[in-house]
């Protein structure tokens, strides 16, 4: 770990100013991912600016009936909040499916969506990785792809030497739920405040895999706003992983179902563990709009969604299993939600 200066300014505005002024500065909140990366050499800042006690820890009602989650509220506090449990079960379930009690007590609302990929190559500074070390190549191609993407990647075996190649996935469970909830991200930056739709916060690798989100240097998440769900909406989060607990998702599904009338519903689906960002399954949603949520209809919708999927060959059979697994998990999740709405 290289040395760095530590600062705890007096206000959020000051913190933003401090980070914006120093190219090698980072924000520190709960630290569960940043401290990990400091030790691994993945993060090498000169200045760490601590905002843990600066941003709001409040969970408050919004005038439109929604909820505002202060950036410093912990994952445990949000998951335990009665309003979240009753109105946004998908979010409580996603949070509780992630990490462990100890980590959730520390990890924050602002930090969780900004955690970085758990790609084993990204985390090992002795291997090539375009995300960590732009232009160095991608060690994951043909390697250990079990936790890697099948959506939003250009090919089954992208060129490992190309600087844009990255098949990493975003590891957050919370973010998948937030994508399905159409959350809004409140951001304070050197240029002032702005609001980003959650679905637009994370990006695909594009030509710069080193960037996970659209946030500019110095921009800080101050809160997440949850819009109210339509009356009668049901939501759930289903995570499929290699252990019963304390494991990242192989695939996960966040779903919100609203019955519009007999034989017709509106569905929102977000997928986790399968792309560089929480993947809103907009194609599947379109196919299902206004129709009955039969298992055949859901399968057809998922077939449309996954038409462009690119399974990544690799060690132990690669990750092609995610494609049928995604469909099966979406079918199961929607089946349970539909049964619950009956």
């Amino acid at each position: 770990m290289k040395p760095f200066a530590y600062a705890r300014p007096g206000s959020v505005a000051e913190a933003v100013r401090d980070v914006a002024a120093e190219p090698a500065a980072v924000f520190l909140a709960g630290g569960t991912n940043l401290v990990d990366h400091l030790k691994l050499g993945v993060a090498r800042p000169d200045l760490v600016v601590d905002v843990r006690t600066l941003t709001s820890r409040e969970i408050s009602d919004l005038p439109d009936g929604g909820l505002r989650l202060g950036a410093a509220s912990t994952n445990s506090e949000v998951a335990a909040d009665r309003r979240v449990r009753e109105r946004y079960p998908v979010l409580a379930e996603a949070l509780l499916a992630g990490a462990t009690g100890q980590l959730r007590n520390t990890a924050t609302t602002g930090g969780n969506p900004l955690q970085r990929t758990r790609c084993v190559y990204f985390q090992d500074v002795t291997t090539a990785c375009n995300k960590r070390d732009p232009g160095s190549g991608c060690s994951a191609v043909g390697g250990y792809t079990r936790h890697h993407a099948v959506l939003g990647v250009p090919a089954a075996l992208p060129d490992p030497t190309a600087p844009e190649t990255c098949t990493a996935t975003h590891p957050s469970d919370m973010a998948v739920a937030l994508a399905a909830l159409d959350a809004q991200v409140q951001v304070l930056g050197p240029a002032g405040e702005r609001t980003i739709p959650f679905a637009d916060l994370h990006r695909l690798p594009g030509d710069d895999p080193s960037r996970d989100t659209v946030l500019e240097h110095g921009e800080l998440i101050t809160a997440l706003d949850l819009p109210p769900l339509p009356a009668g909406a049901r939501s759930a989060y289903r995570k499929v992983r290699d252990r019963a607990s304390y494991a990242f998702a192989l695939v996960s599904v966040a779903a919100v179902v609203t019955a519009d009338g007999p034989g017709s519903s509106t569905v929102r689906i977000a997928l986790g563990g399968v792309a560089h960002k929480p993947w809103r399954a907009t194609r599947a949603e379109q196919v299902l709009r206004g129709g009955p949520l039969t298992e055949d209809a859901v399968r057809a919708a998922m077939a449309a969604e996954l038409a462009a999927a690119q399974p990544q060959p690799g060690i132990d059979g690669g990750n092609g299993f995610k494609i049928p697994l995604l469909t099966r998990t979406v079918v199961a999740t929607l089946r349970e939600l539909v049964e619950a709405t009956r």
């Binding site: 520190l28 630290g31 569960t32 843990r52 009690g101």
Partner: peptide
């Protein structure tokens, strides 16, 4: 795992200075 300000937490992922 210790109790940090009353709640269970992991001191390996916390900077002492913070």
């Amino acid at each position: 795992t210790v109790l940090l300000d009353g709640d269970r937490a992991l001191p390996c992922l916390a900077l002492a200075v913070a």
